[in-house]
Amino acid sequence: MKYVYKTKGTCSTLIELELEGNIVHNVKFTGGCNGNLQAIPKLVEGLTVEQVEQKIGGISCNGRGTSCGDQLAKACREAYEAEQK
């Protein structure tokens, strides 16, 4: 399942991802810090939604209360829940 998530509170504006069951694939960010946004997709490729949430959920960037990683964790959860309906 392909999923598109509009981020909130980050430099990146959009996250695209694919889920196979609860396995995360092909994460792509629009906008944000180029290095981080190349690294994060490689680090989460093949992880479960739960693993992504545990590893990068709750990370804050510059006191914003969220980050690109945190937004990805939220996007994965939202996509997973949408797939279950």
Score class of each variant (00 low, 15 high):
residue 80 Y to P: 01
residue 13 T to C: 03
residue 60 S to K: 03
residue 15 I to A: 02
residue 29 F to H: 03
residue 43 L to S: 14
residue 68 C to S: 14
residue 57 G to W: 07
residue 17 L to Y: 09
residue 66 T to R: 11
residue 74 K to N: 10
residue 58 G to L: 09
residue 78 E to Q: 13
residue 18 E to K: 05
residue 29 F to L: 00
residue 72 L to I: 11
residue 16 E to A: 06
residue 85 K to Q: 08
residue 3 Y to P: 03
residue 20 E to F: 02
residue 28 K to W: 00
residue 5 Y to N: 04
residue 1 M to K: 05
residue 65 G to N: 09
residue 70 D to N: 14
residue 58 G to Y: 07
residue 37 L to V: 15
residue 75 A to K: 04
residue 18 E to T: 05
residue 45 E to N: 15
residue 18 E to W: 01
residue 66 T to V: 14
residue 18 E to C: 03
residue 15 I to P: 02
residue 43 L to N: 14
residue 72 L to A: 13
residue 55 K to Y: 12
residue 64 R to Y: 08
residue 3 Y to C: 03
residue 12 S to G: 10
residue 33 C to V: 10
residue 69 G to V: 12
residue 34 N to D: 06
residue 18 E to M: 04
residue 60 S to H: 06
residue 24 V to C: 02
residue 2 K to E: 13
residue 9 G to D: 02
residue 42 K to Q: 15
residue 20 E to A: 09
residue 68 C to R: 10
residue 45 E to Y: 14
residue 25 H to P: 00
residue 55 K to W: 08
residue 62 N to H: 10
residue 5 Y to K: 06
residue 59 I to C: 04
residue 19 L to F: 10
residue 82 A to F: 07
residue 57 G to L: 07
residue 85 K to L: 05
residue 44 V to R: 06
residue 62 N to Q: 12
residue 19 L to M: 10
residue 34 N to W: 04
residue 17 L to Q: 08
residue 2 K to W: 07
residue 62 N to Y: 12
residue 19 L to G: 09
residue 74 K to R: 14
residue 13 T to R: 14
residue 84 Q to Y: 03
residue 19 L to D: 09
residue 6 K to Y: 01
residue 52 V to I: 14
residue 37 L to D: 12
residue 45 E to L: 12
residue 48 T to K: 11
residue 76 C to M: 08
residue 42 K to G: 14
residue 8 K to L: 09
residue 11 C to Y: 05
residue 20 E to P: 00
residue 12 S to L: 02
residue 64 R to I: 09
residue 50 E to M: 12
residue 14 L to H: 05
residue 80 Y to H: 08
residue 13 T to D: 03
residue 28 K to G: 00
residue 77 R to F: 04
residue 85 K to T: 03
residue 24 V to E: 00
residue 80 Y to T: 01
residue 41 P to T: 15
residue 18 E to G: 05
residue 71 Q to T: 08
residue 82 A to S: 08
residue 4 V to Q: 11
residue 73 A to I: 06
residue 32 G to I: 03
residue 64 R to C: 12
residue 9 G to L: 05
residue 50 E to D: 15
residue 26 N to E: 02
residue 6 K to V: 04
residue 51 Q to P: 05
residue 3 Y to M: 01
residue 59 I to F: 11
residue 41 P to K: 15
residue 80 Y to S: 03
residue 43 L to H: 13
residue 30 T to W: 02
residue 72 L to S: 11
residue 35 G to C: 11
residue 61 C to N: 08
residue 30 T to Q: 04
residue 3 Y to L: 01
residue 3 Y to S: 05
residue 80 Y to G: 00
residue 10 T to I: 04
residue 27 V to Q: 00
residue 75 A to H: 07
residue 66 T to P: 12
residue 68 C to L: 09
residue 15 I to Y: 04
residue 36 N to D: 14
residue 58 G to A: 09
residue 69 G to Y: 13
residue 82 A to G: 01
residue 74 K to F: 06
residue 47 L to T: 15
residue 57 G to Y: 07
residue 52 V to M: 13
residue 27 V to L: 01
residue 35 G to E: 11
residue 44 V to A: 12
